[in-house]
Amino acid sequence: MPGERLTRILAGLAADDRGRTARGLCEVATDVLAVSGAGVMLMAGDEARGSVCNTNAVSAAIEELQYVLGEGPCVDAYQQDRAVLEPDLADPRTPRWLAFTPKALEAGARAVFGFPLRVGAVRLGALNVYQDRSGPLSDEQHADALVMAEVVAHWLLDVQAEARPGALAEELELGAEFYFVVQNAAGVVSVQLGVTVTEAMIALRAHAFSTDRPLRDVARDVVERKLRFG
């Protein structure tokens, strides 16, 4: 009964005002689903735009990997508009996400699940759930995740409806991770190399890939003037 699930989720959001912050939203998802962690990824035009919230370092890494690599359960869930389930990353039934999988395992995830966020025809991104051990979600967890994804999608539109024109919702400004440091670094590197910011972004990604470092760490070094390009 979706009504009962919804009631449980809404009660979780009401407790301690967790529905007021992006982080609270992901905490409720983790509690309600009884999983190791959850994250919410915002997407547009087949591109990851940022992480609305995540509950720990592992779910943060899962989101960031997808932002950097452009592949993973959330990206697929959004693009294919369906739940994407990988109960065993270490021994996947269908090998996919060649770049994402080893890094996600390294970060501590063993099973990952993506659920599209949508309100009617509007698609916003994906709810990302992970487990630190392999195994499928139960039918209950799966059904809860679908309702949770719906709640998250409405939450996003509701907070944005309150935002000043042209501005991001306060909850997102405060709680979400849009990897702006990477954008800062792209601006810096574009000047250093005398190229466009798009080309600078490619240079940053290439550097992160070849040195096997997180893109965000490379970007931070650039804006702290510890790393120069060109």
Partner: peptide, 22 residues
């Protein structure tokens, strides 16, 4: 609106990087 606000922020963050360096 959400995506446009985000696009604006991305532009501003990139511009900050440009001015930071220049």
């Amino acid at each position: 609106q959400l995506m446009r606000a985000l696009d604006s922020r991305v532009l501003i963050e990139q511009a900050k990087g440009v001015i930071f360096e220049r």
